[in-house]
Design a protein around this nucleic acid. Structure first.
Lengths: 220, 220
DNA sequence: GTCTATAGATGGATAGAC
DNA sequence: GTCTATCCATCTATAGAC
């Protein structure tokens, strides 16, 4: 295994580098999403990725920096999708979409990602975990970077100008809770409680249910 | 400090033992609730409690066993309060309380505990954290011990016999999400987003808001 | 019973060979 | 750039002195 010729069999190009980095990124995201941040070591990640132990520090600087990079990429992708849907809803309704379509723009992207056959299924779980287990860096971002949320709050206030702003914020908070509770463990528990009646695999049906509930709650 | 006479100044009774155990218990609950399970070491706990390092293992067996004991005690206390309120609602309505009162029995106890002046304020945060960061033991209990939840599901199905059971379970799931989202960090974020408009200290008002939203969602 | 000292294990990070 | 070997910090748990 110390044969130097073996090195030449591998393409030592930028592509190989990028592939290693991507392998680390994906293995880390997967393991963190499944087992929690503190329960996954750098050794676990590099073993899962099939790369050497030093790769994490070489490509990302540190374990925490790797975590943070995954977090930043996934949240920005998710929020971009939400912003796009909100933008489209605005376009459809001359800048004043109804409550249900605003909420749909917020709910739909993470649900779509969470579909059983979707590659991003694991990314949603990562993001949800980051919200409660994240490092100080992440919590700082979550706390301060509320600009995307502000656009949803503004849209909701425009849709319900009769409602005190305070009520809009609280009801938005309740809607966020509905989204954040869509974790594997909670689905599993609900499945157990309902003795198999609930099937979270049908994301279209779940989206409808969530929108029915949230829209009615918002317009209470 | 090695003077053996000092030992005699302390009451070496069962009370002193119990006091040490309680100090460890409370320090651990507090630190875990504030900083997360994995971020708090046995050293942190014993330092906070002002006892020696070996106390955790002596009184509880291990760090995980201590965690589990806090978890069991607090969740059983909380669920007992909920069950009592559900029982009272049943008594008031001849065994068939309306949706709003069933939900109130589930929502009110953790909100009351979370009031700014309440001793149990920290316990709610501990329980919420256990839900996402708990050990395998805790998750096992959370998954299997759904009997208290089943009573709420049954009551809701009795209140809305017209609704398919599947819908009842999903709507209960949404309500649980609303409760689980009441973490310090989320309140803080909402406060930031709303530029100081939301005040989570007024638990009676928050309970009303939650019930308005959830009742409407449930009866959608 | 309480406390100190330490064992024993693990994890993040890095130097240095190739 | 990649990988191995290793350093060093930190943690839980416990043995043994008092």
């Amino acid at each position: 295994m110390t044969d130097p010729l073996l090195q030449q069999d591998l393409p030592e190009t930028d592509e190989a580098q990028a592939a290693t980095k991507a392998a680390v990124f994906n293995a880390a995201e997967r393991l963190f999403a499944l087992h929690g941040f503190q329960n996954v070591s750098v050794r676990d990640i590099t073993a899962e990725a099939g790369v050497n132990l030093a790769s994490v520090n070489y490509h990302f600087g540190s374990k925490d920096a790797l975590l943070f990079e995954i977090f930043r990429r996934r949240t920005s992708e998710l929020n971009r999708e939400r912003a796009k849907m909100l933008h489209e809803a605005n376009a459809r309704h001359a800048g004043k979409p109804p409550v249900r379509e605003i909420l749909e723009a917020y709910f739909a992207p993470p649900l779509r990602w969470g579909a059983p056959d979707n590659d991003r299924r694991i990314s949603v779980q990562f993001i949800i975990r980051a919200r409660s287990e994240g490092t100080a860096d992440m919590r700082e971002v979550l706390r301060n970077d509320v600009s995307h949320l502000a656009r949803f709050a503004d849209a909701l206030m425009a849709a319900r100008p009769d409602l005190p702003k305070e009520d809009v914020y609280w009801r938005l908070h309740f809607c966020l809770g509905m989204v954040h509770n869509n974790r594997f463990a909670e689905f599993d528990r609900l499945h157990h409680l309902s003795e198999g009646l609930t099937r979270e695999g049908d994301v279209a049906a779940l989206l409808s249910r969530m929108l029915d509930f949230a829209e009615a709650g918002f317009n209470a």
